[in-house]
Simulated assay, not measured.
Amino acid sequence: MSNLAAVVAKPDVEVAIASLQEEGIHDESRRLVEQDEETVAIPVTEPPAATRVRDVIEQVDPEPRASDLPTLLEARGFSPAEIEAAPSSWAVIGDVILVQFGECGRREAVAEALLELHRGADTVLHRAGIAGEKREPTVEVVAGSGDTETVHTEHGTKYALDLARVMFAPGNKTERARMGEVVEAGERVLDMFAGIGYFSLPMARAGAQVTAVEKNPTAFQYLSENARLNDVTDRLELMLGDCRDVVSVRAEAGEQYDRIVMGYYDAFEYLDPAMAVLAPGGTLHMHEATPDALLWDRPVERLETAAEAANRTVLEIDRRRVKTHSEGVTHIVLDATIE
C-alpha cells in the first residue's frame, strides 16, 4: 500500500482534497497530518497529476483515519448515552467546524474529537442561531485556535467570511451552485439580499452582469473582498444599502433586469419593488420559510397577488425545496417567469 502524501498550504486544503478526489487518488483511510505551522500532508495513493501541491512525500508510520465521530468518542471512553447525545451532523466551512451541540454535555471533548476527525480544521464553533434583519449569527468558540475568519471554497467559488460576524448556511450549498448553472452569460441580474455573495458570486463567475445589494456593512465588506478573490469585479456591481432604495432609483431610471434573486425568508415583503424592475419574461427567484401545512399555497399566492397588483402575469412557476428550516417548516424557492 502507498504511504504517499501531498503537501499543501493550510488555506488550500479544502480545494486540494476536492481536486485529489476528482483525480481519484485521495486516500481516505489515512489522516491528514500537520507538517508545520503552514502546511498539511494529505494522503494520496499516487503522485498528483492535475492538483497543485508543494511536495509529495513518503510517510513513515502513517496514522489511520477514524471512520466517524462515534468511533472516536467510543475510543475516548464515552458511554453509549453520551455518544447518542453528541451531534450527528456538522459543517466544515474553510478551516472552521460549525456545529449545533444541542443537549450534548461534553462539548469540549466532542469538539476536540471533531478536530481530530477533520485535521484541516483548527476551530470548532457552536452555532446558536441567526437573528435580526441583518442576519447576524450568534456563535461560541468551543475548541481550537478560536480564529473564526476563513476562506471557504465551494464548486470553485471562494467565500471569505468571519463566521462570528456574518451568516453562512451550509444547507444552501446545492442552491448556490444551481444559481451559477441556470444563469446565462450576459444576463442582467439583481441580487436584492446579496450577503457575502452567496448567489452573486456563482452567477458572476458564470458570466452574468450582477448588481449585488447588501445593507449589512460587515457582510458588504466581505462581498467586496470576495469580488476580488473570485476575479469578478468587472461583472459585479456592489451597492451598500436597503434594496428598496436601490430598486426605487433604478425603476425611476427605467432600468430592468433579466433575473432577480430574493434569497431572504421574508422576500415576499419586497415583491412590489422587484416587479417594478423585472424585465418582461424575466425570472424571479423568491425564497421563503414555509410551514409544511401551507406548501405550496402560501408562497404561490403571495407571488401571484404581487404580480396582479403590478398588472403582470405569472407564466410559469417551478417549485423547489432547498432544505428543512426547522421542525414542520421548509426552506423553499419559487422560480417564476413573469410577463
Rank of each mutant, 00 (worst) to 15 (best):
A50T: 12
A75F: 01
R76C: 08
A91K: 03
P47K: 07
S79R: 03
E38W: 14
D55V: 08
A81M: 11
E58W: 09
S79W: 00
T51L: 04
R31Y: 05
E38D: 14
E58K: 06
R76Y: 06
E38Y: 14
I42L: 13
E82F: 02
T45A: 10
P62Q: 07
R52M: 09
I83M: 01
A41K: 01
A91N: 08
S67N: 05
S67I: 14
S29L: 15
A75P: 04
I57C: 07
E58T: 15
T39L: 12
V92D: 09
T39Y: 06
A41G: 02
V40A: 04
E74R: 11
E74V: 09
V53H: 00
V44G: 01
V53Q: 01
A85Q: 12
E34K: 14
D36Y: 10
S79I: 00
V33P: 01
A91C: 07
V56D: 02
R30C: 10
L32Y: 09
V44R: 00
P87T: 06
E84T: 10
S67V: 15
D68G: 11
P43V: 10
D68K: 10
I57Y: 03
P62G: 09
D27T: 07
E63L: 15
R52P: 06
D61Q: 14
P62Y: 05
R54I: 13
S89W: 05
T51C: 14
E82I: 03
E28Y: 05
A50D: 14
A85V: 11
D68W: 06
I83Q: 00
E46R: 15
S89I: 09
A91T: 06
E28K: 11
S79A: 14
F78Y: 02
I25Q: 00
L73H: 03
G24Q: 11
I57K: 04
I25F: 01
R65E: 03
I57A: 03
A85C: 13
Q59R: 15
T45N: 07
A66K: 07
S67T: 13
E38S: 14
E84L: 12
I57M: 09
I42C: 03
Q35T: 10
T51M: 04
Q59W: 02
P80E: 08
I57G: 03
R54P: 02
P87H: 05
E38N: 11
E34H: 11
P48W: 06
V92Q: 09
R54C: 10
R31N: 08
V33D: 03
V53F: 01
A49T: 01
E38G: 07
H26C: 10
P80V: 09
D36H: 09
E58S: 12
G24N: 11
I42M: 05
E34F: 04
E34P: 13
A50F: 11
P87K: 02
V56F: 03
R31I: 10
A66I: 08
P62F: 04
V33F: 03
A75W: 00
T71H: 04
A41P: 02
G77H: 09
D61R: 14
E46C: 12
I83D: 00
S89A: 13
D55T: 06
Q59C: 08
V40S: 02
I42V: 15
D55L: 08
L73I: 13
T45F: 03
S89D: 13
S88V: 15
V53C: 10
V60Q: 11
I42W: 01
R54Y: 06
G24K: 10
A66T: 10
D61I: 12
H26D: 12
